[in-house]
Design a binder for these strands. Structure first.
Length: 280
DNA sequence: CCAAGGCCTGAATG
DNA sequence: ACATTCAGGCCTT
């Protein structure tokens, strides 16, 4: 059987996974760690570093994944509507910092803060006759002062960012290890970073560490669960405590299976579009 | 273990 | 105008 390689670039980029992307003509350009990607609507790209990374996860067997998560008509509708939406495979350090910045914020603001961070601490390069700033490496953010970071508009998250960079630099956070180890060990490790809780940790694991069972439960997903799945996943408490989060996550993985993260991404995309929320 | 409140910031709302 | 609320949580009490 032919593997389904459909990629909907627009939907994938505009689904809350990445922030440092902009469209110019027929192409999307995006900063990914020390690389800049240039992508057309089919997901075929050239890149600054010419690294051979599977950013759009073409190797995923999308047919199998969709078959696996299509447990009810809600997901089936989302999958049909946003067919070709992909989980992306991002640079882990950039992903970590991005989602620390994302806490208690919104897409426009996250984007603006991250752009300031790249301008201030990243290397300026030229690619396809355009100027870009690469994402700063851990060292540059670790040695920055908290005030310099704060001036990028990240507020109280500045010290989290500095510490996260330092932990990465010192290999207290080792992305190669985290990619190899199982979901629970990775989660425990990542949650030891200040500013990283359950939701942010799941984003990092899903979007950069190849853990497709990670399923970030933010207020949008909670809203969806209350709206469409109140029987199946009814919430025990008003606030989502660590305990409740892990209980809920387990129920979700039991229901949607090992690709629950994909289900989450389709549902999230659908609900945000229903509310006409802006993307990049 | 759970609930409640504070936190940077800026766009949206009244 | 100006005040208040809210936004893709985390941390402390």
């Amino acid at each position: 059987m032919q593997k389904n390689c459909t990629i909907n670039v627009e939907n994938s980029i505009n689904s809350g996974q990445v922030f440092l992307w902009k469209k110019n003509g027929d192409y999307w350009y995006g900063v990914n760690g020390q690389d800049v990607l240039c992508v057309n609507k089919n997901g075929i790209f050239s890149s600054y570093q010419n690294l051979n990374i599977d950013f759009f996860r073409k190797k995923d067997n999308l047919d199998n994944i969709i078959k696996s998560i299509s447990k009810d008509k809600i997901v089936r509708k989302a999958v049909k509507q946003y067919f070709g939406l992909r989980i992306l495979r991002q640079d882990p350090f950039q992903c970590l910092i991005s989602f620390i910045v994302s806490a208690n914020s919104n897409i426009q603001k996250i984007k603006s803060s991250l752009e300031k961070i790249t301008r201030k601490f990243g290397t300026k390069i030229e690619f396809k006759n355009q100027e870009f700033f690469l994402f700063p490496n851990p060292k540059n953010l670790a040695k920055a002062s908290i005030n310099e970071i704060r001036n990028c508009g990240v507020g109280y998250r500045a010290k989290f960012i500095k510490e996260a960079a330092n932990m990465t630099l010192l290999k207290k956070i080792d992305f190669e290890y985290l990619e190899k180890c199982n979901y629970y060990d990775a989660k425990t490790n990542i949650c030891s970073i200040p500013g990283v809780g359950n939701k942010v940790a799941d984003c990092i694991m899903l979007f950069s560490l190849n853990k497709l069972e990670a399923c970030p439960l933010d207020r949008w997903i909670i809203r969806i669960l209350e709206k469409y799945y109140s029987e199946r996943f009814h919430l025990e408490t008003k606030t989502i405590t660590d305990k409740q989060y892990s209980i809920l996550h387990e129920k979700i993985v039991n229901y949607f299976g090992p690709y629950a993260g994909y289900a989450q991404q389709f549902l999230f995309k659908m609900e945000r579009e229903n509310y006409q929320k802006k993307w990049l």
